Simulated scan of single mutants.
Amino acid sequence: MDKLVLVLADGLRADTARFYMGYLAALEEGGRAHRTQFPCMLPSLSRPLYATLITGRAPIEHGVVSNDQPGVSCGETLFHQLMQSGKRSAAAAYYFFYEMLSGERYHPYQHRLAAVPTAGLGAACWYHADEYPDSHTLADGEALRQHYQPDFLMIHTMGSDHAGHVHGGGSDAYNMAARVLDMQLALLIPRWHAEGYHVVLTSDHGMHPDRMHGGTQPVERDVPFYWLPHDRSRPALPLAQRDVRAFLARVLLGAG
């Protein structure tokens, strides 16, 4: 039975990952990781692209086209598909995901640990502050993995996005956020591999030096995709962001 951890590093540019994430580069040099990149869908904004990653549809198709659509569902997702196949899923992620899966507004004092069983999500830990540290999100995700033993675990970190909005894409602080995430993953990926989990790392969008994204320039659109298997398997990597859902489904279910 294949299991998988998806690390969704919010706002991480493809070039930043390539230049500043040395542990991932070491795995790639050693033949234990495989990397590609592709432009994100448009608009290059978070909530629309979260929906794209879990539905496999473009924003203009699934209808989530702005960050300012609280409580709007994105429809059927990868989590639904896995549930229908008897797979267990968990997530440590930003509250936008809760809203898109549940179809209701997120309330921090009510939904912090709310699962969304009707959407196929059996366990979750949500955060609602953009400055919530990546170290905490990773710890939340690992606690869920240890306690619930999901087949699919999504961990969504915000460090790069927050640093980019405060300091700009390509700034020292932005690059440091990628370095710090890489050093934390160096401690977790071997643990996940030892437990039989494949790992995927990708992003929703990039970050412009002007501290924003949403446009069409490569720095706002080009995102990394890393396949980090626990064995030597090497499936064909996705060619576009909308193909990520199908790729994850193939790994977990053996079908698109």
Rank of each mutant, 00 (worst) to 15 (best):
V5Q: 00
V5F: 00
L6R: 02
L12H: 06
T16R: 02
Y20V: 01
Y23D: 05
E28P: 12
P39R: 02
C40T: 11
C40I: 02
P43Q: 13
R47W: 12
P48C: 01
L49N: 15
E61H: 10
H62K: 04
H62N: 03
G63C: 08
V64A: 01
S66M: 01
Q69S: 00
P70K: 04
G71H: 04
V72M: 04
E76M: 06
L78Q: 09
Q81V: 15
Y95R: 15
Y106M: 11
H107Y: 15
P108H: 07
T118Y: 14
T118H: 14
T118D: 14
G122S: 10
W126I: 08
Y127V: 04
Y127T: 04
Y127F: 14
Y127S: 07
P133E: 07
T137A: 08
L138A: 05
H147C: 09
D151V: 01
M154V: 07
M154H: 00
T157C: 10
T157W: 06
G159P: 10
S160F: 08
S160R: 08
D161K: 05
A163L: 05
H165G: 10
H165Q: 09
G170V: 06
A178K: 09
D182G: 02
I189E: 01
Y197T: 03
V200F: 00
P209K: 06
D210W: 12
H213K: 07
G214L: 08
E220A: 06
R221L: 07
D222V: 09
V223M: 11
F225W: 07
L228D: 00
P235Y: 12
A240M: 06
R242F: 13
D243N: 13
R245N: 02
A246I: 02
F247P: 09
A249Y: 00
R250Q: 10
L252F: 01
